[in-house]
């Protein structure tokens, strides 16, 4: 397996977005691309990442291989890569180590690291294609702000979506609060749009702590999409660009 990405910053941001939620994970390499699926230690949420092969500058994978990686160790290695460095990842069939090569844009600096891999026995969950009742698209910076603002008030947030608005409400020890967003009527910048598509209104409760973990993915994408259906996990998606791939989080709802 060998793959090269032009911008190390993408992998660095992906890692920042999952390392506080997941300790160890298998990076699954196949001819289609690089993917990862992992639950947090409490088994309340699930991370699903896909980087399509065509998003890489170079991608070669003859046989599917899983690279078991400790994310804290990978973070240490990726700290050594500049944001604009290219990154080449290599693994042989034995799958006991992975090689990382970082090269500066001017090609005058090359650094090489080797990471010991681990055997991770993780169960892979099947995520069904779902027709969600409500889909909300909003700026990821707005999502991050709401989660951080409401997170100081309480542990859970009630998300209510109607045709007219999406409302985030918190009810905590010191009092309560809410933020309500209406779909944008005037669109100046596509990245500042709030869009709601609705089959039926939803009203669900989620842990704010996890929503705040997911907000660490905001640097990956200008917009985030929240998909909700009653009594079903919330899906939060950050896309890396049209052809590149995505990072999705799933969070089990709190049931009254």
């Amino acid at each position: 397996f060998e793959a090269r990405l032009t911008q190390a910053s993408l992998i660095k941001k992906i890692l920042e977005a999952i390392k506080d939620l997941v300790t160890d994970a298998n990076f699954d390499c196949s001819p289609e691309g690089l993917s990862l699926q992992a639950m947090d230690s409490s088994h309340v949420s699930l991370v699903s990442m896909v980087l399509h092969a065509q998003g890489f500058e170079m991608f070669r994978c003859q046989r599917a291989v899983s690279l078991g990686i400790n994310l804290a160790s990978l973070t240490k290695i990726l700290k050594c890569a500049g944001n604009d460095d290219s990154i080449t990842l290599r693994a042989d069939e034995k799958g006991d180590k992975a090689e990382f090569v970082f090269e500066s844009q001017s090609q005058d600096r090359l650094s090489e690291f080797e990471l010991k891999l681990m055997d991770i026995d993780s169960e892979h969950l099947g995520i069904p294609d779902t027709k969600y009742s409500a889909i909300v698209e909003m700026p990821s910076s707005e999502y991050r702000r709401i989660c951080s603002d409401l997170g100081v008030m309480g542990d859970t947030v009630r998300i209510s979506v109607s045709k007219e608005s999406v409302k985030f409400q918190v009810d905590g020890d010191i009092g309560k609060g809410s933020v309500c967003l209406h779909p944008s009527s005037v669109v100046d910048k596509p990245t500042e749009v709030v869009k709601i598509s609705l089959e039926e209104p939803v009203d669900m409760i989620f842990s704010i702590r996890y929503l705040n973990y997911f907000a660490k993915a905001a640097p990956l994408s200008d917009t985030v999409t929240l998909s909700l259906s009653k009594d079903f996990p919330l899906q939060i998606e950050f896309k890396f660009g049209e052809q590149m791939g995505y990072l999705r989080y799933y969070l089990a709802p709190k049931i009254d």
């Binding site: 639950m39 088994h43 309340v44 969950l125 099947g126 995520i127 089990a252 709190k254």
Partner: peptide, 14 residues
Amino acid sequence: QASQKSISSFFKKN
């Protein structure tokens, strides 16, 4: 108090 369900109770094991 709302109770928290596990994510694996929603998605089938492959």
